[in-house]
Amino acid sequence: GCWSIEHVEQYLGTDELPKNDLITYLQKNADAAFLRHWKLTGTNKSIRKNRNCSQLIAAYKDFCEHGT
């Protein structure tokens, strides 16, 4: 299931919640338009490089609020 937004804000980028895991989750569960909008298409590695934690948190919040 979903992590809470508080959990993501607190732990994203740590061993508790690697950016990797959040990106994988969104790529698996969000639709193509969402991924394009948040620039989460492409390889996990390129996304990790190009999107910082606050951008990923914003995307995750949007996903939780509007889910697909």
Rank of each mutant, 00 (worst) to 15 (best):
A32H: 14
Y11R: 11
A32F: 10
T14A: 05
Q55P: 03
K39A: 09
H66P: 12
D31C: 14
A33S: 13
C53P: 05
H66T: 12
P18K: 05
T43W: 08
K45R: 11
Q55Y: 15
K39G: 09
V8T: 03
E16T: 13
E9Q: 12
H37N: 11
N20F: 08
C64W: 10
R48M: 08
D15M: 14
V8D: 02
L17N: 00
Y60L: 03
S4E: 10
I47S: 07
G13H: 02
D21A: 15
E9T: 12
N50R: 15
L17R: 01
L22A: 02
C53V: 12
H7C: 04
S4V: 03
R51L: 12
T43P: 09
A59K: 01
R36W: 06
N44P: 08
C2F: 15
L12Y: 00
K45N: 04
I23E: 03
Y25L: 05
G42H: 05
Y25V: 04
E16G: 08
G42L: 05
Y60N: 00
N44M: 13
I47E: 10
S54T: 13
K19V: 07
D31P: 10
V8H: 01
A59L: 05
L35Q: 06
W38H: 13
Q10N: 12
L35Y: 02
Y11V: 08
E16I: 12
I5Q: 07
E65K: 15
L12N: 00
Q10V: 05
T14C: 05
I23N: 01
I57M: 15
L17D: 01
N20T: 14
N52W: 02
G13T: 02
A58H: 07
G42E: 07
A30V: 02
C53R: 09
G42M: 05
S54A: 14
S46Y: 11
I23W: 03
L12P: 00
F34E: 01
K49M: 05
E9N: 12
E65M: 14
L17A: 02
I23Y: 02
R51S: 10
G67C: 07
L26I: 10
V8P: 00
R51G: 06
H37Q: 13
T41F: 10
L40F: 05
I23F: 03
A59H: 00
S46I: 06
A32M: 13
Q27D: 02
L40Q: 00
T41L: 14
C64P: 02
Y25M: 07
F34M: 04
E16A: 12
A30G: 13
T68R: 15
W38G: 01
Y60A: 00
T24P: 01
L35H: 03
E65F: 13
H37K: 13
A30I: 01
Q27F: 05
Y60G: 00
C2K: 15
C64L: 10
E6P: 05
T41M: 11
I57D: 03
D21L: 15
P18W: 03
N44D: 08
T68A: 13
A58I: 04
V8C: 05
F63P: 01
K45L: 08
G1T: 12
Y25W: 13
N44W: 05
A33R: 13
D21R: 15
P18H: 15
K49H: 15
G42S: 09
R51K: 14
N44T: 15
G13I: 00
L22Y: 00
K61T: 07
L35K: 10
F34C: 02
K19H: 07
R36N: 09
I47C: 09
K39C: 08
Q10K: 14
A58R: 11
S4K: 06
L12V: 06
N44C: 07
A30N: 04
S4M: 07
H37Y: 10
I23L: 05
L40V: 04
Y60M: 04
T14E: 04
N50P: 05
D15V: 14
D15R: 15
D15S: 14
H37A: 14
K28Q: 13
D15N: 15
K39R: 13
D31T: 14
W38C: 03
C2E: 13
F63I: 03
C53I: 09
Y60Q: 01
E16M: 14
K45S: 10
K49P: 04
Q55A: 11
C64S: 10
S4N: 09
W3V: 02
A33Y: 06
S54D: 12
N20I: 14
L40W: 01
L17H: 01
N50A: 12
K49R: 12
I47K: 06
H37V: 09
A59F: 01
D62Y: 07
A30K: 00
L56M: 04
L22F: 07
D31V: 03
N52V: 04
H66D: 12
N29C: 08
K19C: 05
Q55F: 10
P18E: 04
N20D: 09
